[in-house]
Design a protein around this nucleic acid. Structure first.
Length: 487
DNA sequence: AAAAAAC
């Protein structure tokens, strides 16, 4: 019996390359999306973060391109440069020793070099909309040979700002091209884009009601705004994540937050869209290589990035909306692995968390830090209540144990810990905290060279731009949505 | 209440 990727008609040489990466069984989205893509249908595919969407389109792309034809036949559009690089890496591993060439066409990098590389006639290009459109305008990239277009994170790519670039690209292509839209989130307005550009679209939706992975645990902690950094420091000390992404809403706040976190001894690097190419590369490569523990980032890092060492996601600012929350927390808990998403909020931000929980149909559990211990306030009340009952006296005392599920290499419980798990009813309490604190798990990794990210340099320019632009774009986008009649 | 994406 034929099983695995072979049953999806994936060629043996690719199956072998996948096996080398220990990928043996197709995920549900791969099972469902690969056949219609191979058949040539326009496909809209939705499944949770970290469920293998990238391979669901990359594998069929490799079958579709003719490696003997020396022209660009497939285009993958992505919202950020980092995601573009990641996808190129994924493809590169698969096309090794084959005649297929992949070229990234992203902003920030030297356009001259990309023009040179295009002369080598890659069959597949991966890029951000602005740069791809730029190369088309310069007549360095021909769209006429393109038979398949993937728009990854389609809901973001079609936001105002890159929408016009993408539509210009679509207009420049042959009618016969196959379109593939992918995302974990497909807000209603995307339907307009689908209706406008796709022919008889085939919808593939895996578990659409469950927008976040089941392996994700959602928590939140409440403190004052000024205490957020210290709260984060204590949480990192407690959970000691192998790697964590810390999200912050505004670029302008990154530099100061990085400095503060470094000051309290955390190993952190900042990443945001306006950082220089070298800074972005240093942050991403350093984080991927495990050279620092925390990546402090704007939503530039919210989508698509696959960083296996990320065990925790922290929201130092609450996400802008539920979809942003989905993508942010989706940087962990990927491919069946466990992950923890922790939002640090002020009392005034409580309603945002409540709204996310309701919209997404998930439970976001409240936790508290008390003298370095993690407490589930709900559970705590129950325990106290039970303790007062005479019959509960014997069970009132809890046996000492390892911090539940959080123990990992190099993560000797640094602080006294009590963790409660409402779902399983398991309760454990670490009492050795004081002693272990002396040993301290906080093997503070060396600070990264201490350079301040150079945010200020561009702040002036940005502020000037903003003044000239009038209403912010996100507001304009909202107005457009409401005011426009459906086509 | 924003970020991203072109030079």
């Amino acid at each position: 019996m034929i099983t695995g990727f072979a049953s999806l008609h994936i060629r043996p040489d690719y199956v072998k390359k996948l096996q080398e990466q220990e990928i043996t069984e197709p995920s549900p989205i791969q099972m469902d999306a690969i056949p219609p893509i191979l058949e040539g249908k326009d496909v809209v595919a939705q499944s949770q973060t970290g469920t293998g969407k990238t391979l669901a389109y990359c594998l069929p792309l490799l079958h579709k391109v003719d490696e003997n034809a020396r022209e660009v036949q497939a285009l993958v559009l992505v919202p950020t440069r980092e995601l573009g690089m990641q996808i190129v890496h994924t493809l590169d591993q698969l096309v090794k020793d084959s005649g297929i060439r992949v070229q990234q066409l992203i902003g920030g990098a030297s356009i001259e070099r990309q023009i040179d590389k295009l002369k080598l006639k890659p069959q597949i290009v991966v890029g951000t909309p602005g740069r791809v459109q730029e190369l088309v305008k310069l007549r360095k990239l021909k769209l006429t040979g393109i038979r398949t277009v993937v728009v990854d994170e389609v809901d973001q790519v079609f936001e105002l700002g890159s929408m016009q670039d993408v539509e210009a690209l679509f207009k420049g292509m042959l009618k016969e091209r196959q379109l593939l839209f992918f995302s974990a989130t497909l807000p209603a307005p995307i339907q307009n884009v689908i209706d406008r550009w796709m022919n008889d679209p085939h919808y593939v939706r895996v578990n659409p009601e469950q927008r976040t992975a089941e392996t994700l645990e959602h928590q939140y902690y409440v403190c004052q705004e000024r205490d957020k950094i210290d709260m984060l420091r204590r949480l990192v000390r407690h959970y000691n994540p192998k790697g964590a992404i810390v999200f912050i809403n505004e670029t302008d706040d990154i530099g100061e937050a990085v400095a503060k976190l470094q000051y309290v001894g955390l190993s952190v690097e900042g990443l945001y869209g306006d950082s220089f190419k070298q800074e972005r590369a240093r942050a991403m490569q350093g984080f991927r290589a495990g050279r620092f523990q925390l990546l402090l980032a704007t939503d530039v890092a919210a989508r698509g990035l696959d960083l296996p060492q990320v065990t925790h996601v922290f929201n130092l600012d609450p996400a802008i909306d539920a979809d942003h929350y989905v993508h942010r927390v989706g940087r962990t808990g990927r491919m069946g692995r466990k992950g923890t998403a922790i939002s640090i909020i002020t009392p005034r931000e409580q309603f945002i968390i409540d709204k996310f929980a309701k919209t997404l149909g998930i439970t976001i559990q409240r936790r508290e830090m008390s003298h370095g211990r993690v407490i589930d306030p709900e559970q705590e009340r129950t325990i106290r209540h039970e303790a007062r009952k005479p019959s509960a006296g014997a069970t009132g005392r809890v046996r000492p144990a390892e911090p539940a599920g959080e123990k990992r290499e190099g993560a000797a419980g640094s602080e006294e810990v009590r963790e409660t798990k409402t779902s399983s009813g398991v309760r454990s309490e670490g009492l050795a905290g004081k002693k272990q604190a002396a040993v301290s798990s906080f093997t503070a990794k060396p600070k990264t060279a201490g350079q301040q990210p150079s945010v200020d340099k561009r702040k002036v320019e940005r502020d000037r731009d903003r003044k000239n632009k009038g209403a912010p774009r996100w507001l304009k986008a909202k107005q457009d949505q409401s005011g426009k009649p459906r086509a």
